[in-house]
Lab assay of single mutants.
Amino acid sequence: MATKAVCVLKGDGPVQGIINFEQKESNGPVKVWGSIKGLTEGLHGFHVHEFGDNTAGCTSAGPHFNPLSRKHGGPKDEERHVGDLGNVTADKDGVADVSIEDSVISLSGDHCIIGRTLVVHEKADDLGKGGNEESTKTGNAGSRLACGVIGIAQ
């Protein structure tokens, strides 16, 4: 089992970053940390998408990683996509320092995120509470600013 993974985020604009993942036990939580720069100040949706395909930019990554066919939600919700990591918060300089621990994603097994795409979005994720159909699919997080395929790390 891989215990570490990394993702280099890039987009068409100024947004870029490096996100690290570490899972010490196969059924334990995954620590997610790193930094994203070039964002507007505020909240930005942060999700693992189904495919590791960036051939047409971030759009070819498909929908959120959702092997259990659930509705979109927040990272602490029972009803959520596996890939729903909530929001990252950018400061006035456009930098989001990421520090998350998640017990639904994994670096092995059915919820493995390796080979899938991590995406940072234009807007805040409403965590499935926006009151419309799009909220239950995407959290109304808007366009995909930057993305990268999650790969095994040393």
Rank of each mutant, 00 (worst) to 15 (best):
P14R: 09
D91V: 08
H72T: 02
N87D: 06
A90G: 10
I19T: 05
D102L: 07
H121S: 01
V95A: 08
H81A: 02
K137L: 12
H81Q: 01
I36R: 01
C112E: 14
S135C: 04
V98H: 03
G57W: 03
E79M: 11
V104Q: 09
S26Q: 15
E25Q: 13
V104D: 11
V119K: 01
G28A: 15
V120L: 12
H111D: 11
A153G: 15
L43M: 12
L127M: 15
G73F: 03
K92L: 13
N87E: 03
G131R: 11
S103A: 08
L118G: 06
T138D: 01
K31A: 05
G13T: 15
H49L: 00
A141G: 08
E78A: 09
V30P: 05
C7N: 02
E122V: 06
G11K: 12
G74P: 04
V30Q: 02
A61R: 01
A96Y: 03
V30D: 02
V32S: 11
S106L: 08
W33H: 10
R144Q: 01
G130F: 09
C112Q: 15
S60M: 04
G130W: 10
V149K: 01
L68V: 04
E50L: 05
I113T: 10
G62P: 00
Q16P: 06
F65Y: 14
A146N: 11
H81K: 01
I19H: 02
T136D: 08
C58W: 00
S35T: 14
T136L: 12
A61H: 01
S69R: 14
G86R: 02
G42E: 08
G13P: 05
D125Q: 01
H111C: 10
Q16M: 13
V82T: 10
H47P: 02
N27F: 15
G38W: 08
N27I: 15
G13Q: 10
S26M: 08
G73E: 02
L107K: 04
F46S: 08
I100R: 13
C7F: 00
W33T: 10
S69L: 09
K24I: 12
V8S: 06
N20M: 14
A90I: 11
L127T: 10
L145W: 10
G151S: 03
S60F: 02
N66V: 04
T136R: 09
D102F: 15
N87W: 00
G83R: 03
C112G: 13
S103G: 07
A61K: 01
R70C: 09
L127Y: 11
S135H: 03
D77S: 14
G109D: 13
P29N: 15
F21M: 11
K71Y: 10
T138K: 03
E122P: 02
L107E: 00
K37E: 12
N140G: 12
T55S: 11
K123Q: 11
K10A: 13
L118N: 03
N20W: 09
A2T: 09
E50V: 14
K92Q: 11
G109V: 09
G11F: 11
T59N: 05
Q23H: 04
A5P: 00
D77V: 15
A141I: 01
D77E: 13
K76P: 11
L68H: 04
G17T: 03
T136K: 15
N87L: 01
R144W: 01
K76Q: 15
C147A: 02
H121C: 02
G94C: 12
F46R: 02
D93A: 09
V30A: 08
C58K: 02
G142E: 04
R70A: 10
L68K: 15
V48R: 02
R80M: 00
D12A: 11
F51R: 03
I36M: 10
D84F: 01
S108D: 11
E134T: 14
L9H: 01
V119I: 08
D91C: 06
L9F: 14
D125F: 02
K129M: 07
K31M: 13
S106R: 13
A141S: 06
K37R: 14
N132A: 07
K123A: 12
G42D: 05
H72D: 00
N54Q: 13
L43W: 08
T3N: 14
K10D: 13
A61G: 04
V48Q: 00
V32H: 00
L43P: 10
I114Q: 06
V120P: 00
G109Q: 07
K10C: 15
K129N: 15
E25K: 05
P63F: 05
A56I: 08
G45A: 05
D84L: 02
Q23Y: 15
A124V: 11
P29A: 15
D126K: 00
L39S: 07
D110K: 09
D125E: 02
K4N: 10
K4P: 08
A96D: 05
I18P: 04
G128D: 03
L39V: 08
N27C: 14
G11W: 11
G130E: 07
L39Y: 03
H121N: 00
I152M: 07
P67D: 14
K24L: 11
V98Q: 06
P29V: 13
K10Y: 15
C7S: 14
K4Y: 09
K71I: 08
G115S: 04
D125W: 00
I150A: 05
E25M: 05
V95H: 06
K129Y: 06
I150C: 08
D97P: 06
P75Y: 07
A124P: 10
T40M: 08
Q16V: 10
L107W: 00
V30I: 12
K71F: 10
A56F: 09
G115V: 01
S143K: 04
G45M: 00
E25W: 04
T59I: 11
V120F: 05
G151P: 00
G42P: 03
K10V: 15
I18Y: 14
S135V: 01
K37N: 09
P67N: 05
L107P: 01
V119P: 00
F46L: 12
K10F: 15
E25P: 15
E101H: 12
A61P: 02
H111K: 15
G74T: 15
G128V: 02
G130Y: 10
E25V: 12
V15E: 14
V32W: 05
T136V: 07
I150G: 01
E22A: 13
P75W: 13
W33C: 13
G131C: 09
G11L: 11
P63K: 04
G94Q: 15
V149A: 06
D110F: 05
V119R: 00
A5V: 13
K129F: 10
I19R: 02
G52V: 00
L127S: 07
S108T: 12
K129A: 07
G148S: 07
I19C: 10
A96C: 05
R80Y: 01
G11P: 05
E134M: 05
K137I: 06
G130T: 10
R70L: 15
S35I: 12
